[in-house]
C-alpha cells in the first residue's frame, strides 16, 4: 500500500483544504485497481496458454 498523502502542517488541524486534497488523492488512487486486476488476470491467462500449448 503506497500512501502519497503529504504530511500536514498541523497534523491535528490540517484544514479542510488538506483533508479534501487527501480525499481526492485517495479517490484517484483507487483507479490503480484496474491495472492491478489486469495483471492478476494476466497470470491466469498465462496458465491457460501454457496448458493449451503443452498439455491440451
Amino acid at each position: 500500500m503506497i500512501d502519497h498523502t503529504p504530511p500536514a502542517g498541523d497534523p491535528r488541524h490540517p484544514g479542510d483544504a488538506f483533508l479534501q486534497a487527501e480525499i481526492d488523492e485517495n479517490r484517484a488512487g483507487e483507479r490503480a485497481l484496474v491495472p492491478k486486476t489486469v495483471i492478476a488476470i494476466a497470470f491466469v491467462v498465462l496458465l491457460v496458454v501454457v496448458r493449451e500449448l503443452f498439455f491440451a
Partner: peptide, 18 residues
C-alpha cells in the same frame, strides 16, 4: 479453483505489497 486462486492471490498481493 486454480484460476480463481491464481487471480485472487495475484490481486491481493498487489493490494498490500508491503
Amino acid at each position: 479453483a486454480a484460476c480463481t486462486f491464481t487471480f485472487t492471490l495475484a490481486l491481493a498481493v498487489q493490494l498490500d505489497g508491503e
